[in-house]
Each structure stands twice: as structure tokens, then as C-alpha cells.
């Protein structure tokens, strides 16, 4: 899932301070699970903004709301008119949600209420770890199922650098050296010899380096297009 983290209240205040009516708009999927931007945190941020406004003596109406996901229009369509009744939407969704909503609120600005951190897993309650970089060309079958792109500080593809210290990365002794983990895991799997192959320079065009990416699932698209051609539903989905 997408992991987010909270922004300092001062940063948020600098974004919202000149608006009269602010909606803190939570997203109840990924960022809720990581306690960054669900309805609960949206409520908390709204409360902090109100208190901050009180300190400054500013009259400001700050409310909160939440929907299941900001990244699919069906979820926020039912409340979009209410959302648009605000001067500012502070979305606590991930960056995807902020962007997606921005395209759909007309003249109402949508600002980010949290920082979108990474794609991660819940290692332990309240502890999230980046495990995938979304590079668009997965090779972890060659690396024991562990990703050197996301988890090696230097995205090394052919083995560890010389900075591995007691199984930890040179960047921080709190970061595991993924190459250490890969080697140990592949030893266990009996596939260590796979690592002898030199992986050639990668084609990064599947990653962010290739420009903004899109995925089109043709059989779903075709269905949607047929639906759109029916006169009674034409344009109904946009």
C-alpha cells in the first residue's frame, strides 16, 4: 500500500492560513491504514488548524470529512458539491488523491495535507517499510524475491557495495543491507548461483524516468468504451 506521513502543523498552517473555509478531506484506504490521512487524522488535523487559527485570532471554519478513496471518482462524486463549497481542500490522501481531486474541483484549490512516502508494508503495528519502488519491470525473481531497486540505497543490481556492515547499510545502521538479505535468502533457497550472472544496465524507461506512466487494461477499456457508446450512458462516467 501507499504509506504517507504527517506534515508539521506549521507547514500546514502556512498553506491554509489565508483561507476562510477549509475542508480537511481524509482518504480511508492506504493512508488511513498507516495513520497518516484517514478520516481520523483528517479530524485531528482539522482540530489542530482550528486551534492554530484561534491562536492567531483568525476566524476560520475548518471541517473534516472522509471517503473511502480519493483515487476513484465514484467514491467522492457523492460529496463533490459539498467539497466544492469550501475555499480550500486540504487533502490527506496520498499525492495520487491530491492530484486526482485537483483535476475535479474546478476553481477550488486542493493542497496536500500529508507527505506521500512510499509503497510499503506494515512490518509491525505503526512501523512501515518501503519494499517496492514501482519501477515497472520487476526482477525480484532473480534476487530471491527481495527488491534491490527499492531496498538498496544505491539501487545496485549486481551485488552489495563495500559498505555493508554487520548486515546493515552504510546509510544507517537501522537500514538492512538488502543485498545481505538477498544473499542469505538465496543461500537458503539454494539459488545463489543465479547471482553470478552480471545483469546488464537496466532499461529505466518503465520507471518514472520514462515519463508519467499509464496502464491500460484493454478488456476493461473495451467494455467501458462500449458502455460509453450507448446513448443513455454516454459521458456518464467522466
Amino acid at each position: 500500500m501507499i504509506v504517507g506521513s504527517q506534515k508539521p502543523i506549521e507547514e500546514i498552517w502556512s498553506m491554509v492560513k489565508d483561507f476562510k473555509k477549509v475542508l480537511v478531506f481524509g482518504c480511508n484506504t492506504c493512508v488511513a491504514i498507516c495513520h497518516a490521512g484517514g478520516e481520523k487524522e483528517a479530524a485531528t488535523i482539522a482540530s489542530l488548524i482550528r486551534m492554530r487559527a484561534g491562536q492567531e485570532g483568525k476566524a476560520m471554519e475548518v471541517n473534516h470529512m472522509g471517503v473511502m478513496r480519493h483515487c476513484e471518482p465514484e467514491y467522492f462524486d457523492p460529496v463533490i458539491e459539498e467539497v466544492k463549497s469550501y475555499d480550500l481542500v486540504l487533502s490527506t490522501a496520498c499525492g495520487v488523491g491530491v492530484n486526482f481531486l485537483s483535476d475535479r474541483t474546478g476553481t477550488i484549490p486542493v493542497y496536500p495535507g500529508i507527505n506521500t512516502s512510499f509503497y510499503g508494508a506494515v512490518e509491525a503495528p505503526g512501523f512501515f517499510k518501503e519494499l517496492c519502488a514501482g519501477c515497472g519491470d520487476c526482477i525480484v525473481h532473480l534476487t530471491g524475491g527481495l527488491c534491490p531497486i527499492a531496498r538498496c540505497s544505491k539501487t545496485l543490481m549486481n551485488g552489495p557495495c563495500g559498505g555493508t556492515n554487520h548486515g546493515k547499510c552504510e546509510v544507517s545502521n537501522e537500514v538492512d543491507c538488502v543485498w545481505y538479505l538477498i544473499v542469505e535468502r538465496m543461500k537458503k533457497l539454494g539459488t545463489l548461483e543465479k547471482l553470478s550472472e552480471v545483469l546488464p544496465p537496466r532499461n529505466w524507461s518503465t520507471s518514472r524516468d520514462g515519463g508519467p506512466r499509464r496502464v491500460s487494461v484493454e478488456h476493461i477499456r473495451e467494455y467501458e468504451e462500449q458502455e460509453a457508446q450507448k446513448p443513455e450512458t454516454a459521458g456518464g462516467k467522466k
Partner: peptide
């Protein structure tokens, strides 16, 4: 309608 099965309650 609001639960996203995040496991927080189960854990706590």
C-alpha cells in the same frame, strides 16, 4: 461502510 480492514483494532 467505513472499515478498511486495517487490523488496528485487532492489534490493539
Amino acid at each position: 461502510q467505513k472499515c478498511m480492514a486495517c487490523l488496528t483494532c485487532q492489534r490493539i
